[in-house]
């Protein structure tokens, strides 16, 4: 075991960015470990969890719906309840919303087309551990690739989330018809975050952008801090 913060990447049947996520986490200083959808527990020493992108369970029923009730999600729920940082990327975001660990839901893109492009997202609120390496108003270039990325919540929820600073990332332009151009949200405790763009595909300027690395590195920082609090306790 290394002394690098251990981040578990959960693989569901149909996840396809799990390996990229693990590679990117390794590139920003984590010790990435694999977790499986049927696991009842997260790997020993887990300090952070990533639910990766993909098409879990073939997107049956609704995107993320089947994954949200997979056995491993009980462990993820308990980990989040204990204050552990959990990041859901794309299908992982959809799964966290379906699991009601995050507010809202991801609906089919308004234009009914799969979008696959680099987009600019603005840091709306940096008051969450995942955004500790960003500043408010900062623009990040991170690719999206999704068919069901239009975040939606009812108006009252939306207003409350905005007031509490839980809307952390917004697209600079309308990408998919998301309410308020929302690209990423955090839970009220701010230790669970979901976003549609793929930070794991943007960790090296050589491949277009390194901006995603800021989010992943912040997750790694948080995973280290979370493990340290457990060690003290």
């Amino acid at each position: 075991m290394t002394d690098k913060p251990r981040v578990a990447v959960v693989t569901f049947p149909g996840s396809n960015d799990d390996h990229d996520a693990a590679w990117a986490l390794g590139a920003v200083g984590a010790d990435p470990v694999a977790a499986w959808h049927q696991d009842a527990e997260l790997p020993a020493g887990t300090g952070g969890v990533v639910l990766p992108g993909g098409f879990s369970y073939g997107d049956y029923l609704r995107t993320g719906a089947i994954a949200s009730v997979a056995p491993v999600m009980d462990a993820v729920r308990a980990f989040a309840a204990a204050g552990g940082p959990v990041l859901g990327i794309c299908n992982g975001f959809q799964t966290l919303c379906e699991a009601r660990l995050l507010p809202g839901v991801l609906r089919p893109n308004r234009q009914l087309e799969f979008v696959c492009e680099d987009v600019t997202v603005r840091v709306e609120n940096a008051d969450a551990p995942f955004l500790s390496r960003c500043s408010p108003g900062q623009e990040l270039v991170i690719p999206v690739k999704h068919g069901e990325g239009a975040w939606y919540a009812d108006q009252w929820t939306f207003v409350q989330l905005a007031a509490r600073g839980q809307i952390v990332l917004r697209y600079a332009d309308d990408v998919n018809g998301a309410l308020g151009n929302v690209a990423g949200v955090v839970n009220q405790a701010r230790n669970v975050m979901g976003l549609m763009p793929h930070p794991e595909h943007a960790v090296d300027p050589l491949l277009g952008s390194g901006d995603g690395g800021l989010l992943l590195a912040a997750l790694v920082d948080t995973a280290a801090a979370f493990r340290a609090t457990l060690a003290v306790a």
Partner: peptide, 9 residues
């Protein structure tokens, strides 16, 4: 309420 429908939408 637990799986088949998402009450939000």
């Amino acid at each position: 309420s637990e799986l088949l429908a998402n009450p939000l939408i």
